[in-house]
Design a protein around this nucleic acid. Structure first.
Lengths: 243, 243
DNA sequence: GCCGAGAATGAATCCATCC
DNA sequence: AGGATGGATTCATTCTCGG
């Protein structure tokens, strides 16, 4: 299988995770931000394009659409269970898993992690401090990180806190509608062991790989959309130049 | 039905919620901190007494056991669905509901709220900043507030943020093992309308009622354990004296 | 360079219209 | 009737720009 991009710490594959993951082995951590299939109470809302259902109020910055974000709840559970199980087959004993998700799909994700054979161990929180006001009550100020291990966890030297606070990325540094801040990815990365091989099966703009590299891990990214492979590869080569 | 305690803003009933709630009407908000039936992965862990399974690091202060905290997941879902439906029958259209819960029972509670006929609208977060370090990964630094409405929500003037930060209560101010800080209860109270009648079917030491009073709401508390009725009544009369 | 005012932003939600 | 569409709305934080 030919990588789309490769350097000393990072490998990117362009393709579908279900095709690529079975060729992998010795994965120590799965840290990812899958398409949420969220964005509305109704089927029609969820089926809308990612750029219209996740409204970027009045921005002039273009960000590409992303794929796989329009499953209903049953399919989302089935689909997550399958790729999570697939990833666990490539994982070492004691490997860890962590998936970002919003409030609406949080319970589904806890089911999916367990259906995929992982041991669910907790829900960590990314606080954005304040979200867009919600006319019916509390603002959506947080996203969640559902995490677990492949069987018994490994002993560790690092005890990360279950909550992290950071503002959403914005402006030109934000190349994907759902991009997480680097500080949040660095925090999530602390779940893995210092020398871990980290897999992100839904790489997007590659922020997970940047964090993995910054934290001394090795990383494998998979992305179905070539446009994002290109963005991630550019970002990672710039990182190399910056060192 | 004879109240155990009553003043201008607050009524306390001593009894089981399933017996008391059907006699109520015009409830505008249900804000409560039910027994989590959590505290361990195994049945034996959950069946331990509340004062032993919820470890109180090194404190000598005695706190009474509390009831209803040893159900397995299926029973917890069934039981929550039943009292939530029961409470909804006493609720006005557009009333709101909010239940505190830990990560382990969070998905069950989102199911229960919907099974009880409420519209689930979000998951808000109470951040304790730090939790006990967890040897397998992230510390449990947060508890969650699953919230919703009885049909369409009412229009509102207050737009509370979906996350609140406060340290856990400690020392003598803590009269119940699972007691929430007043600031957290005041924040939760902001989900309700300013003149709402707030019901807490699992009153415990009465912190919800204190918050309701402080925020200008009227409150009804129900508690099965007379020892806690006494604690709550004492607390509320002191509040009256303090005014 | 620092500060303050004003504008822009957000994995959103609701509701009236329109097919 | 039910699904799809488009516009209005909310505010703490962040960003921009001028003094």
């Amino acid at each position: 299988m030919k990588p789309y991009y490769e350097d000393s710490a990072v490998t990117i594959y362009h393709g579908d995770s279900f095709d690529v993951i079975p060729a992998l082995e010795s994965v120590d951590a799965v840290i990812t931000d899958p398409p949420y299939s969220s964005g509305g109470a109704f089927r029609g809302d969820r089926m809308a394009s990612t750029s219209s259902k996740y409204v970027q109020s009045g921005t002039a910055i273009y960000r590409p659409e992303f794929a796989g974000d329009n499953r209903d709840q049953r399919s989302f559970l089935a689909w997550c269970s399958l790729w999570l199980n697939c990833a666990r087959n490539a994982a070492t004993p004691g490997a860890c898993v962590a998936c970002f998700i919003d409030w609406r799909q949080l319970p589904i994700m806890t089911d999916a992690i367990q259906c995929g054979g992982w041991t669910w161990r907790g829900v960590a929180v990314w606080s954005k401090k304040y979200g867009r006001p919600n006319p019916s009550g509390f603002s959506s100020a947080c996203e969640f990180l559902v995490w677990g291990t492949n069987g018994a966890g490994l002993s560790r030297d690092d005890y990360p806190c279950g909550i992290v606070e950071a503002a959403s990325p914005s402006g030109e540094a934000k190349e994907h509608i759902a991009q997480k801040p680097e500080s949040v990815m660095n925090w999530a990365m602390r779940l893995s062991q210092p020398n871990a091989v980290v897999l992100d099966p839904f790489m997007g703009s590659g922020i997970t790989l940047v964090a993995a590299k910054a934290m001394g891990r090795k990383a494998i990214g998979i992305e179905v959309d070539e446009q994002y492979c290109e963005i991630a590869a550019r970002r990672l080569s710039q990182e190399v130049l910056a060192l």
